[in-house]
Amino acid sequence: MANPIDLHVGRRLRQRRRFLGLTQQKLAEQVNIRFQQIQKYESGANRVSASRLWSLAKALQVPVSYFFEGLDDEAAAAGDVNGRNGCAAHACEDVFSNKETIDLVRAFYNLDEEPRRRLLDLAKAMSGE
């Protein structure tokens, strides 16, 4: 069974890779490994070494600390990475792990300021805010 911290790091890796629009293959090429290794990191099946984490952070243009953001020390020690009693790996997935969310955010920021504001207002109105 994968360690909760390894699962968290893997989710953050996948989230950032998708946000940048990179395939596992392209990211693997940037850090000189095979795409299967990226798959294993993202699933938490393999731990990411410190030197590899450094390479991945550089390739994904984030600080190493990015991979640990949202990780509560006490919850992690108890095996509860996101403070939700273990449901983070299943039903409580981070919203940014969803491909459609990443596509929506990318499209949103490609709009000019005025249409972006209008779209946000529309979304708020539709959600009842």
Rank of each mutant, 00 (worst) to 15 (best):
E74F: 13
S43M: 06
S127W: 01
R52L: 03
I5G: 02
Y109P: 03
S65D: 12
V64Y: 10
L60P: 04
F19D: 07
D6P: 05
Y66H: 12
S51K: 13
A76I: 06
R16Y: 04
G21T: 14
R106W: 03
E114K: 09
C92E: 01
A88G: 08
R118P: 03
P4D: 09
A76E: 02
I33Q: 11
F96L: 07
Q36P: 03
Q15S: 03
D73I: 10
L27C: 00
C87L: 12
N98L: 13
V105P: 05
R11C: 02
W54P: 08
Y41W: 11
F67M: 11
L27T: 03
G21H: 08
C87E: 12
G10Q: 04
G79Q: 07
T101A: 08
S51F: 12
S65E: 14
C92L: 06
E69P: 00
L120F: 00
G70M: 08
D73C: 09
D72R: 05
I38C: 08
E42K: 04
I38R: 04
R84E: 06
R34N: 10
A89W: 08
A28D: 07
L71D: 07
I33R: 11
E93I: 13
Q37V: 10
A89F: 08
I38F: 09
A28L: 01
V48M: 03
R12D: 02
L13Y: 07
G79K: 08
F35M: 15
Q39A: 11
C92H: 03
Y41E: 01
I33D: 02
G79A: 14
L27N: 00
R47D: 03
A28W: 05
R106I: 04
G44V: 02
Y66K: 07
D94W: 13
V64N: 09
G86Q: 13
R52Y: 08
W54C: 12
F108K: 14
M126Y: 03
V81G: 04
V48S: 02
N82Q: 14
V64K: 12
A2V: 13
L22F: 10
Q25Y: 12
N98W: 12
V48Y: 00
A59I: 07
M1W: 14
L104W: 15
S55W: 09
R12Q: 12
I5A: 09
E93P: 06
E100M: 15
E129K: 01
A78E: 15
F67L: 02
R11T: 10
T23G: 00
L104Q: 14
G21W: 09
A107Y: 15
I38P: 01
Q24F: 00
Q30G: 05
N46G: 10
M126D: 01
L27W: 00
Q24K: 01
I5W: 01
K26N: 06
R16M: 06
Q24S: 01
A107R: 15
L119R: 02
S55R: 15
V48E: 02
F35Q: 14
C87P: 02
R116P: 03
D112T: 10
